[in-house]
Design a protein around this nucleic acid. Structure first.
Lengths: 336, 336
DNA sequence: CATTAGCAATCAAAAAGTTTGAGTGCTAAA
DNA sequence: TTTAGCACTCAAACTTTTTGATTGCTAATG
């Protein structure tokens, strides 16, 4: 591809992102100071190479997936780290006293607004967090609350019913033992450890009621394994011309509501992942691009922020923004 | 209105609910064993009375809001409590060991599926719940977690930073005091009580750092005041022919995403409230009906379940179902 | 050899026109 | 009071026409 062809491709992407209309040779002729016929020749070549396509025989050109890919790899990736124009975000991250999860939520809201896409935050799961405290809080004669607290201050609870036969004294002993046993254990190892100790140590004798109690505990622990997510800005996206087709609109929303969208989010990548159109496996999402950017927590888990929008999105702006956000969310974890 | 006119109105509503098409005189003539001309005459009267209307000069008739109102008041309200056909729901409520909030969530999911409407659960707020325990869990040298637990087993937490100057011993004393002070206090009275005691009792001397600590506590308490909600089934609803108009669809979804829908939910009513079309104050919702049904918790708070769908909904089925659900959710609270 | 002016060809989208059929209101007779 | 009959209405579906942006190709230009 010659230099001029690359310039033309870039212009087509930029223009199309703005206008959502196919770009004709005349439009580009004005910018490039050659005649429209010359542009047409070049466009013909670009089309043969597969970077652009026509919507019908006599239409202007739009970028193909390959075209977007090229644009991202050569043009966007070579941009110097741009952090200007992210004013609202800088403001957000500078509030040191806000809670981390709140900041992330707001960042995702802003991201969605700024891009007119749907934005998603997939929290790191707490698998490697460590148990800080296990506790039983009696609520009434027959009910109690199991509390599990991690070193990051996450709390999960599970209510249990205490039948008549259970001895309150014994219960307290069990909890003490559990605390001793589990403190500083990573959540991922809890279940294993519990089962082992029940078999092999003196905890066995104490736990007359292990079926109920231990199961409840394990259930409480298992809640940490569920990754929490936050999804926002569907309505921002609906007004994009891509969604003028009511069928597509419905399918898109159904996919989101059924949580199928999570299948498309790349959580294993380091840095940023961009999946364009048919690179996504879900048929209803093949007009969309899914961008994922991960960050690391101190305990070795990964969190992800993602953006879902029409393939025609402003990659030039969005990709640096996603990088910027992941970097700063990671900082929030490092500060602790 | 004569008996026959009432029958015709009922048939028009029933048919229209099924088909979403205007009902012509010929259709009804078959069922009623009179000629279509007779039906037309009766329809003319019903139209003059305002119970039905035409979509254009030569179209069949559809129910007006007044027509739906009449249908609900005279036909649906007089139905014997119908509880048959709610098989899935009976099954759901019979699982005694599931957690209450989980059951409610599932009930709302089912409700939405069964009706093709958007279903919402507005949890009772915890204003009248009582403080069961207040606790401080140290996480690291400079961080701690404030925990507040209510008699219903709801837990709220707030992380705080502990600056160097704070004396750990003193902090423990403060927590002990707070526990003593606040236990069994309704959440709604906590703030008041705290402020009073700080002014008048010996707690004053202890609380050198009240600004930070007490504020954090108050913030933790205030989280209980936020009513939790669960909203589901938007995508079920999108396939209704009412939403073939893309403009309406977008507006509806925007209204939902902005939480404006909550303005339309009647939480103060006893029993059931049905708001049809323009009875709703939000312009984008004036083709919708919002049904709300409340239940009482043991501590005097109200929870609400709601259903939002096109005015053309199957009131005959939906209204008994909503009553049934509210009754059974209330039972869940009574069992504790 | 790259560039360009010129021109017929293409085709979506918008506008205008046509057909169809379900439904109505009204009238006059049963 | 009910009904048959008929002219009338109008949305929805379908067809045709017009418009205009854009293309590919060719032949001329520098």
């Amino acid at each position: 591809m010659t230099k001029r062809q690359e310039v033309i491709l870039k212009l087509i992407v930029d223009e199309y992102v703005k206008s959502a209309e196919p770009i004709g040779s005349k439009t580009l002729a004005e910018t490039l100071d050659v005649s429209s016929a010359t542009i047409r020749n070049e466009m013909g070549i670009l089309e043969d190479l597969g970077y652009i396509e026509k919507t019908h025989t006599s239409s202007g050109r739009i970028p193909s997936e390959k075209g977007y890919r090229y644009y991202i790899e050569t043009i966007v990736k070579n941009l110097d780290e741009e952090t200007d124009g992210f004013f609202e975000f800088e403001e957000l991250f500078s509030h040191k006293d806000h809670e981390r999860d709140e900041i992330i939520k707001e960042a995702i809201d802003l991201l969605s607004q700024a891009t007119n896409c749907t934005a998603i935050s997939l929290g790191p799961n707490a698998f490697n967090s460590k148990v800080k405290k296990v506790q039983l809080v009696p609520l009434s004669l027959h009910q109690a609350l199991i509390l599990v607290i991690t070193n990051y201050g996450y709390v999960e609870s599970k209510q249990i019913n205490i039948s008549e036969e259970i001895d309150a004294q014994e219960l307290i002993k069990v909890i003490d033992l559990l605390n001793e046993l589990l403190i500083d254990t990573p959540i991922s190892k809890v279940s294993e450890k519990l089962h082992y100790e029940i078999q092999h140590s003196h905890i066995k004798e104490l736990l007359k009621y292990r079926e109920t109690i231990v199961d409840s505990f394990i259930e409480a622990f298992s809640k940490f394994a569920q990754t929490k997510y936050y999804l926002t800005g569907q309505s921002n996206m609906l007004y994009q011309p891509e969604f003028n087709d009511i069928q597509k609109l419905r399918q898109f929303l159904t996919t989101i509501e059924n949580n199928e969208i999570f299948k498309l989010i790349e959580t294993d990548t380091d840095g940023i992942s961009v999946k364009i159109g048919t690179e996504n496996q879900i048929t209803t999402m093949q007009d969309c691009t899914v961008i994922s950017s991960t960050y690391d927590t101190q305990d070795g888990e990964k969190g992800t922020i993602s953006l879902v929008g029409p393939t025609r999105m402003d990659y030039r702006r969005v990709i640096p923004l996603m990088k910027y956000l992941a970097k700063h969310i990671q900082k929030l974890y490092e500060e602790e």
